[in-house]
Amino acid sequence: MEGRSGVKGTLYLLLTVIGIPGNIIIIASLIHIAYYDHKLLAADAILSNLATVNLFVVLVRCIPETTAAFGLKQLFDDNGCKIVIFIYRTTRSLSIWMTCLLSGFQCISLIPVTPTWSTVKRQAPKYLGPVLVFLLLLNMSLSTPAILFSISSANNSTGNKHAVNLEYCFVRFPLQTVKLANGALQTSRDVIPIVLMILASAYILLVLYRHRLQVKEIRNSSNKQGSTMEIRAAKAVVTLVTLYVLFFGIDNILWIYTLTVARTMQTSLISDLRVFFSSLYASVSPIVIIISNRKVHNKLKCRKIKQEATYSETVS
């Protein structure tokens, strides 16, 4: 058990060390771009929101899991557990919706220009703000069971077979039917964006395939450059969607397993694996964004060049 706790703590510490700086870099880079350019494209605004919710996922999930694995379990009282679990469930769900929204805007940018779609492309960014507010309120309302059933680990709930043990907190359900209903709610609210993301990614892949067939026919260098930028962004979105679908699939298969099987030592291990995969996207996605997003990448490159120039001047 001690060996498993050590491995678990090390893995979550790794996610924390990668996830916090990675998401902060994206947020800071996009804020810097918005400040100096006096505007932020819709896709960049979605990326900044995605990085923000992923940062919260790392803060309220990976850090408590790390400390609990290394022996410090009683971090929160009842109110603290309610707040932490509520924030986690809300931001985790928002993470998938932000990825879905990003794939949707990428589809709109790749759709051929027609009178109808030209209007959609022009009007869509104007509705981004209300859509973000709606998604926030929706996911906050669907996370309210966390407020009702979350308690501190100081309140021993090991005798309650309907409780979910997070080590630093318990989610204590009164009945098995309530536990199953809550699990179904948490899973089903993610199914819709997953389906939409898959459909959007299928369209993006179709566009990429057509682009590959036509790329030899492109002769105008400016058009080629613009097309290349769109294709690069499309590949990045497909990569993010693929990662989320993969981690979401593993997470929910394990979640369904823990809801339906008897409570044993094996299910405790399965629960640890489920929580790990549910947190993995928040730490891995910033790496993909930093590598693939030209604006963020160039901002970091310029920063590095300035630092090297400053260092050279100081040395000389």
Rank of each mutant, 00 (worst) to 15 (best):
L72G: 01
V131I: 15
A309D: 09
V171W: 01
S292V: 03
T144C: 08
L50Y: 11
N252M: 10
C62N: 14
T99I: 13
N54V: 08
R294E: 14
I287N: 05
L13H: 00
L259H: 01
I290Y: 04
K216T: 08
V245H: 05
D44A: 14
S221K: 03
T158P: 02
M229Y: 12
T228A: 14
M1C: 02
T52P: 00
L196T: 06
A282F: 11
P145K: 00
G80N: 10
P112G: 08
R210A: 09
N79Y: 12
T67I: 04
R210F: 11
A124Y: 05
L137F: 13
T99F: 04
F105I: 03
S141W: 10
L196P: 08
T91N: 14
S268N: 11
A34K: 11
I253T: 13
V275G: 07
H32Y: 14
L246R: 03
N49R: 12
C107Y: 11
L166K: 08
E2T: 07
D37S: 14
R232N: 12
A45S: 14
Y168D: 00
M1T: 09
D78A: 03
Q106K: 11
H211W: 12
T10F: 02
V133I: 15
Y168N: 00
R61L: 14
S5D: 10
K161F: 09
A45Y: 05
L185Q: 03
T114H: 05
V245A: 10
L246T: 15
T264S: 14
L138K: 07
Y203N: 06
Y209M: 12
T239K: 10
L47E: 02
S150R: 02
L101F: 05
N156W: 02
G22H: 09
L14M: 13
H211T: 15
Y209L: 13
L101T: 15
L75F: 01
P21A: 09
G80C: 06
L136P: 07
L72N: 09
A262L: 09
S316H: 10
R61K: 07
V237H: 07
R212C: 13
M1D: 11
Y36K: 15
F247Y: 10
G249A: 12
L94K: 04
T91H: 13
K73R: 14
T116R: 15
T177L: 06
V191K: 00
T158I: 13
T267L: 13
A69P: 06
V191T: 08
M98I: 04
K126D: 06
I63C: 01
K121R: 12
T187W: 04
L269K: 01
Y88L: 11
D272C: 03
A34F: 05
T264E: 10
V284I: 13
L240V: 14
R61M: 14
V237L: 07
I147Y: 05
S278N: 07
P174A: 08
P286I: 00
P115C: 01
S152P: 07
I256L: 08
S292P: 04
S285T: 15
A163Q: 09
N220S: 06
A45W: 12
Q307W: 07
S316I: 10
T90G: 04
L138G: 02
S48V: 13
L175V: 12
K216G: 14
I46T: 08
W97C: 02
Y203R: 06
I250P: 03
S5Y: 02
L180M: 08
K121Y: 01
A184G: 04
H38K: 14
I108V: 15
R274D: 12
N155A: 11
T91R: 04
